[in-house]
């Protein structure tokens, strides 16, 4: 896994940027996902193939049950594919152990969820610091930078209940980017927000793309237009 991380570090070098933009950071190869529901087996994804370049902002759209969130969870290694493989910088992460995947997630992927999923007992600052706590990083200077980046440095000592929906989502985005991940996965990030706030969040995600690869799951075609590319999923297949 350390070789893999070094590879990712190299890809962040500005001299390699143009090359990076052409390179495929993420390759989803023949990914199938089946779930067992009682005695029945349900196939949610049917041999999906997808390639995402470094720094790209990709939206995944599709109807409910089309497998968008499942695909995103598999790319973020919150879930494993039943068949197929996920390559990050040509390294097959589906073959990694659970421990290696935790390390992968921690350093490479940031998640933003529709329901924000902040921990209510912690302040904005503490929520953003969580990934650093789990990685054992004692330098918390990145926390303030991340909060500044989402415009919430002045609200860092507030608990989620004291923040608006848009602010909570911005805290969640700060938490997702505090480790400076290469990939940001956002699952319906505006689903719980009004249109104006939603647009602001998408603008924020858009501003992050380039520094990192952003994959966003959304129902909203208007918001999806902000992205570089839209991938449509229909019944577990890519219909790009």
């Amino acid at each position: 896994m350390s070789d893999y991380l070094e590879t990712l570090e190299t890809s962040n070098n500005p001299e390699n940027l143009s090359e990076n933009l052409l390179a495929n950071l993420i390759q989803v190869k023949d990914v199938t996902k089946k779930y067992r529901l009682g005695n029945n087996e349900v196939e949610v994804l049917h041999g999906i193939n997808l390639e995402v370049k470094a720094g790209e902002f990709v939206s995944i759209m599709g109807q409910s049950g089309s497998g968008k969130t499942t695909l995103m969870n598999i790319i973020g290694m919150l879930d494993r594919p039943t068949e197929g493989s996920i390559l990050i910088k040509d390294i097959d992460i589906t073959k990694k152990s659970q421990k290696e995947l935790v390390d992968f997630r921690r350093r490479t992927v940031g998640f933003v969820f529709q329901q924000f999923h902040l921990i209510p007992s912690l302040t904005a600052y503490e929520n953003v610091a969580l990934p650093l706590v789990f990685s054992g990083d004692k330098d918390n200077s990145a926390v303030e930078s991340a909060l500044e980046r989402v415009g919430l440095a002045h609200r860092m000592h507030h608990k989620p209940v004291e923040l608006s929906g848009g602010e909570q989502q911005r805290v969640a985005i700060a938490r997702a980017v505090v480790m400076k991940p290469k990939i940001l996965l956002a699952d319906e990030p505006t689903g719980a927000l009004d249109a104006t706030t939603g647009s602001m969040i998408i603008s924020l995600l858009k501003s992050l793309a380039g520094d990192m690869t952003v994959i966003m799951v959304t129902h909203n075609s208007e918001l999806a237009e902000y992205s570089d590319r839209i991938v449509y999923l229909k019944d577990g297949n890519v219909a790009e």
């Binding site: 919150l78 935790v102 921690r106 902040l118 990934p131 789990f134």
Partner: peptide, 16 residues
């Protein structure tokens, strides 16, 4: 469960 899920999603290992 939700908080544990969040923590694991943001990098908490089994050991942690």
């Amino acid at each position: 469960l939700k908080e544990i899920g969040i923590m694991r999603a943001v990098g908490a290992s089994n050991r942690q």
